[in-house]
Design a protein around this nucleic acid. Structure first.
Length: 508
DNA sequence: ATAGGGTTAG
């Protein structure tokens, strides 16, 4: 007869080795054998997600009065977080005799859904209750400040707090800081934190490489990679996702190929879907569509929607009707509800003057009731984040924003700017297309930034979609005429506009 | 003899 301890030890071993099926089987056999699970057992079995659903265990945990134990309660909370049930997780959290692990688990729950406010509110409560945070607390709450709508100021304050408590040097905290600063558009601060790290692990190096990649600083990413190799740190698959995407963002096709073979031949790392996806993106953006499709044909995976979207975006550049049709059909069949494929294909037909095909796409969208994904932009002014939706007029300063936009438009037109209406999907008159373009969320956010921040301040804008070509042109011109530095983080990378040009070199 | 929280990617 085995004791509850040996049963639990056996189950724990299975779960830690990802053999969930065997772990769950052991749990069942334990019950059948008449051995009652204890608090350790419940903590272990809750870790067997996604095969074990938290609600299945929750009732038993309540019945056995383990719900308030920090160990069981935290495991339960975390299991709810993993299925996206943050509200249930919070209810569980409120029941627990909270220790610092429970607090950190709740914070990382908010971080997972990018709820910066929820995380910061919880972090404040922790302080009010006189609880002493530790390094995991900081790593979690800082991680909750990486989302596009998070205020950069918030992250900075948490950095200061972590210094005050003496945790800023802990690896998990400093790597979270590198990622946070990079994602907030502040790559210089990210690098400063990276330089101050006394010791580094793989995650530290990867965070810095990915940060540089997102900002299109390929050479700097290579330098960090070289330094890493010099120090005999073995890169992993994630390192190469970072380094190849740095090549992708700058059009360095040969370098990308070099790193890919280095990964496979020298480091013997088996490429994953992400690596193929990077390579397809590398070729697509460089307009090498045949190469891109041959990668797809050769890979041992079904091409994901991301992969076809890269190809389709590349087709827009090269106007390859045949490949774009193939890519769009694949993409539409994978994601019939998403607008991206329809939009891109429609734009390609429009550019090729194929109006009949374009209107058929339009009809298909109407039939399937596909809505264009709404474009959002965020801008931080005086420590507060403002959200703009395309066509938005709900902002209190809406009149002044529009006035500013009109003023800028006429200035730009004098400089020879012509709106690039290729980016408008709707079948409407040219003048109306121009109006739509000039209601894009990033333009609204920029106008608001210009009227509400001092001349010397850098304007930082985040966007949920990729920045459109017309907005990109306009931002370059505006940055020049108003002599301001503007940083835009879109869903793909960062653009630094300064003196009439962009850090992406118009390659994005 | 058994337990819960964190970090890098597209």
């Amino acid at each position: 007869m085995h004791s509850v301890v040996s049963w639990t030890a056996a189950i724990s071993g299975c779960v830690q080795n990802h053999d969930l099926v065997r772990g769950i089987d052991l749990f069942r056999r334990m019950i059948i054998a008449g051995v009652k699970p204890n608090d350790f057992t419940y903590s272990v079995i809750l870790g067997a997600h996604p095969l074990v659903r938290p609600n299945e265990v929750h009732a038993q945990v309540i019945k056995t009065n383990y719900e308030t134990l920090p160990t069981v309660g935290t495991a339960l909370l975390d299991a709810y977080v993993r299925i996206g049930a943050i509200n249930v997780a919070r209810v569980v959290f409120n029941m627990i005799d909270k220790d610092i692990v429970a607090w950190s688990a709740m914070l990382s729950g908010y971080a997972r859904i990018e709820d910066t406010e929820g995380a910061v509110r919880t972090y404040m409560q922790l302080g009010e209750e006189g609880i002493c945070p530790n390094e995991y607390t900081y790593s979690s709450v800082i991680n909750a400040c990486t989302g596009p709508a998070a205020a950069a100021e918030q992250g900075k304050q948490l950095h200061a707090c972590s210094i005050k408590w003496g945790y800023s040097c802990a690896l998990c905290v400093s790597s979270a800081l590198v990622t946070m600063y990079a994602k907030r558009g502040n790559i210089d601060s990210a690098y400063k934190v990276f330089c101050r790290q006394r010791e580094r692990d793989l995650v530290s190096w990867n965070s810095m490489i990915s940060g540089y990649a997102q900002h299109g600083h390929a050479r700097k990413a290579f330098e960090v990679f070289d330094e890493m190799e010099r120090r005999m740190i073995r890169p992993d698959g994630i390192t190469f996702v970072g380094i190849i995407s740095a090549c992708t963002h700058t059009g360095m096709v040969e370098q990308g190929e070099k790193y890919y073979s280095m990964m496979v031949d020298h480091y013997r790392i088996t490429p994953t879907m992400e690596h193929y996806s990077c390579m397809v993106d590398l070729y697509s953006r460089a307009g090498m569509l045949e190469k891109a499709t041959s990668v797809i044909a050769s890979m041992p995976f079904q091409a994901s929607a991301t992969v076809w979207r890269s190809v389709l975006a590349g087709c827009r550049l090269k106007r390859n009707l045949e490949i774009s049709k193939l890519a769009a059909e694949k993409l539409i069949s994978l994601q019939p509800d998403h607008s991206a494929a329809y939009t891109l294909l429609s734009n390609i037909y429009a550019a090729a003057g194929k109006w009949k095909e374009k209107s058929e796409i339009r009809k298909l969208m109407d039939e399937r009731k596909v809505k264009k994904e709404a474009g959002y932009s965020w801008i931080e002014v005086k420590k507060k984040t403002y959200t703009f939706l395309a066509g938005d007029s709900s902002h209190p300063l809406s009149d002044r924003i529009n006035e500013k936009l009109r003023e800028l438009l006429s200035l730009l037109k004098d400089m020879g700017y012509r709106p690039d209406t290729d980016y408008v999907l709707h079948d409407v008159e040219e003048e109306y297309k121009e109006a739509i373009l000039w209601r894009h969320s990033e333009k609204l956010a920029l106008a608001f930034g210009l009227i509400s921040t001092p001349q010397e301040a850098v304007i930082r804008i985040e966007k949920n979609l990729r920045v459109c070509g017309d907005c990109h042109t306009v931002f370059k011109l505006i940055a020049k005429i108003v002599r301001r530095e503007v940083i835009v983080g879109d869903s793909n990378r960062f653009h630094h506009f300064k003196g009439g040009s962009c850090s992406c070199g118009d390659y994005w």
